[in-house]
Design a protein around this nucleic acid. Structure first.
Lengths: 224, 224
DNA sequence: GATAAAATATGATAATTGTCATACTATTCA
DNA sequence: TGAATAGTATGACAATTATCATATTTTATC
């Protein structure tokens, strides 16, 4: 049983508002899991009854549309929490979380969290603000999906990946996504996504070598 | 100064969690406004510093996309609250609220609400749940926008209007929206919206007489 | 390392959607 | 009332995007 007190990622989420005593309580009731790439942490419709704290790795939050396509709503990474909305609404989760790389996560039961929620004002306020941030993000995202053409959405997705995950030593985006997954973020067909990436390559905005994507001119992408 | 205690719409929002004493406090510090059709309650980027309680009327919550189009994110009606997210995030509002009909609204300053928020657990929990509901709705909406074709989105918008606002004595939808506004909800060009409405008319799904829309076969719309 | 399977790429084509022009209708207001 | 204006409707066309077919490349597996 590792100690939450010494867990660094805690500093990046609402859990930073918890005191020593509360962290000890969590360490006592949490369970740690290793999730392999491609495995689900939870699936749409499941009752989760707690939240996950992402200790390491990245996952995608997606939802199956009635047309059979998976739309990726959001990527969640080290330090973030998962399942807060569902816990507070007291409802099954609305999205599916699947690991994009091997992950380390801790599960904290709802009862424990809700206890802190009622007693630690800073903590509940922090959780609320995080959810409010998600709501604003979702509204903005919605407007983009409804109003911007695929090319622009793809460009903005690449910029988002660059800003959020940075680049590797070879200058390629430091997150591994298949073309199908990128298409799932953009909200388009996989072939359309591939085609536009080829276009971006031809116009010198990016370089492609295998799965790797190198953004050579981010200002060009921003100006699309 | 009207009494919040006797205001019926309060029962439809988180304000129902407030006790007599708290309602008296609100009645004391609130201000009431009449908003004429077409006027803004607030605009994107403004600092609002409180919440609005909709006593009567309907408004649209929209956001201007960089392409110059207004995307309508949500309609808000009698009994609902406005500006909760912004208040909790302590940020300017993210959306513009414009009256679709003459409205009666009350403004309650942030300081007052935040006071109850810290003391009345049921109240803060209710507000949270409302915001969590908005987040779920926004995620679902986003997936629809990204994955469904315009025709299906229009059909679902009409069904939503039917379910939320019902029909008038002449069977027409009990909410007045211009074609441009319907297009703004669907996320398409006004002409495309008009054209598809004509198609729906030709195939006997709806009837159009002037601005009025009558859904003649809702099951057909649902099956699109 | 050879082969199968999966992922990526590209062409051809169709379907969807947007844009611009123009006509028609309803509403406003002098 | 009648002109002006805004809103609705439709045609013609262009641009965008999806779909299906088929290479080509990469990855996985034995």
């Amino acid at each position: 049983m590792s100690k939450c007190e010494q867990c660094i990622v805690r500093e990046f989420s609402s859990l930073k508002a918890l005191n020593k005593e509360e962290l000890l309580k969590i360490a006592d009731c949490k369970s740690s899991y290793t999730i392999k790439k491609g495995e689900a942490i939870f699936s749409e419709g499941e009752n989760v009854n707690g939240i996950f704290c992402i200790k390491d790795g990245v996952c995608k939050l997606s939802k199956l549309s009635t047309n059979g396509n998976d739309q990726i709503v959001k990527l969640i990474t080290k330090g973030e929490l998962l399942g807060q909305r569902s816990m507070i609404s007291d409802e099954p989760v609305n999205l599916t979380a699947i690991a994009l790389e091997d992950m380390e996560v801790c599960f904290i039961p709802k009862a424990e969290i809700m206890g802190f929620f009622n007693e630690n004002n800073k903590f509940s306020m922090d959780i609320m603000k995080a959810i409010c941030g998600d709501l604003k993000e979702a509204d903005d995202h919605l407007v983009n999906m409804a109003q911007k053409p695929v090319k622009q959405r793809l460009a903005e997705t690449l910029i988002y990946l660059y800003d959020s995950f940075g680049i590797d030593t070879d200058n390629s985006l430091n997150i591994k996504l298949s073309r199908e997954e990128i298409a799932g973020m953009v909200g388009t067909a996989t072939e359309s996504c591939i085609r536009l990436l080829s276009d971006f390559k031809k116009s010198g905005h990016i370089e492609l070598s295998g799965k790797k994507i190198i953004i050579t001119d981010i200002s060009k992408l921003k100006r699309l």
